[in-house]
Design a protein around this nucleic acid. Structure first.
Ligand code: FES
Ligand code: FES
Lengths: 133, 133
DNA sequence: TTAAAATACGACTATATTAGTCCGATTTAG
DNA sequence: CTAAATCGGACTAATATAGTCGTATTTTAA
């Protein structure tokens, strides 16, 4: 089938943990220990989520991250696009210029492929972190 | 987003071409020329489809392939599993032993992830080659 | 004021997956 | 017999993903 990247998987795990945790601030180390996720990797993921204002961060010795959005407002679609980029379901569809492609002079599957992609986007948009809690 | 492999993409293009073509037998060379697909690669794809009885083949100098199934009976799900394997949406779900995983001692997202995978499988099962014609 | 522990950022390396090639064998019509 | 096709597997190349490293900055508390 089709596979989620580790970054997306780790994001879901971490965000769910934020969602169910009572603590205000959690550190990357705490989460990476709990789930055996490589610390440096998770740290960068949380930094990215922080940059996107999905988390807020505190620096310094008692720092950490906490959720800045409702779990029901964070979609899988958003996370996937954030970490895996906007690349389309086939090479020539970059999400942006869906009409203008590209690779094969005579591509006969362009329209149905674009439809497929749109449907998948709608599906992943409908999946929220709250669905994993 | 999520990307189809070239093998799957080429399969769709080729199968659609078989579906709309009047000719009885088409060769790998003919299709690879028409769509600028690497010949050797397409040949192997058609061989595989042939092995799966989706196509039937004739060897020899006037040989080639033709459809052996209705386009409405060939699902995207089947093609994806055929060429990309049965790997699940995350590493530890191998499609088979969906219940028994695995990587994280305390994986908290297993159940919703399995649900996600099942829904995607249903979706891709519902997409047929005839939807691309 | 210094040390420790955290985030922040970017470059780098390693690994895995995918894409594509090559070689030789077999088949079959002409 | 030969040309042109399928068959099959091993091999290489290219790309994408996963993970590491080094260094800077921030903050708290001893
Ligand atoms: S070549 Fe662009 S969709 Fe097929
Ligand atoms: S570790 Fe198996 S589903 Fe999460």
């Amino acid at each position: 089938m089709i596979r989620l990247s580790k970054k997306v998987e780790y994001s879901i795990i971490a965000l769910k943990y934020f969602a169910i945790s009572k603590e205000t601030y959690l550190t990357a180390k705490e989460i990476s220990n709990k789930y055996k996720i490589p610390h440096e990797l998770l740290a960068k993921i949380l930094q990215r989520l922080s940059k996107e204002k999905i988390l807020t961060s505190n620096q310094g010795i008692n720092g950490g991250y906490k959720l800045n959005k409702q779990p029901s407002d964070i979609s899988l679609e958003y996370i996937i696009k954030l970490f895996d980029g906007e690349k389309g379901i086939v090479e020539c569809i970059n999400g942006k210029s869906a009409g203008e492609c590209c690779i094969f002079d005579e591509c006969t599957i362009k329209d149905p492929i674009i439809k497929l992609q749109k449907e998948l986007e709608i599906y992943f948009s409908s999946k929220k972190i709250s669905d994993f809690v």
